[in-house]
Amino acid sequence: MDKNFFLANYNYWAVVVLMMSGFYVVLSRNHLIKKIVGLNVFQVSVFLLYISVGKIIGGTAPILTGKPELFSNPLPHVLILTAIVVAISTTAIALSLAVRIHEAFGTLDEAGLIAIEHAIERESVQSQ
């Protein structure tokens, strides 16, 4: 693989790095807020993928003037607007869930939560 392969596709490399680091954070962190942060990074990488694909070097905004012009593809950008809305809603729900979890369990640490849940499970088994 030559140097150009890396350079020519630098946007993809950025996407891959972001995606994997976001994914890694989601899987490896115990703190729920950090998981949400990771999830956001992960989603942003997807946005970048779409946006960078739509961009054409030297292209302008897609406003039709009647003359033949080189312009960027607007559709991916529009799609990502929608995706961003979805991502924001997801984050909002995730955060509000985190608030409720903190109220109900007193912790946001996943290990701690699992321990509490196991304790509840044991109690319910014993009470029968």
């Binding site: 994914f23 989601v26 729920l32 998981k35 999830l39 992960f42 989603q43 997807v46 979805v86 997801t90 729900i93 995730a94 869930l97 985190a98 409720r100 979890i101 109900a104 369990f105 939560l113 849940e117 509840i120």
Partner: peptide, 18 residues
């Protein structure tokens, strides 16, 4: 425990959608 269940569902569901 519904809260943590929903949270996990959210994380996995969002990853799936992404």
């Amino acid at each position: 425990r519904a809260l943590t269940a929903a949270f996990n569902y959210l994380i996995i569901g969002t990853i799936g959608a992404s």
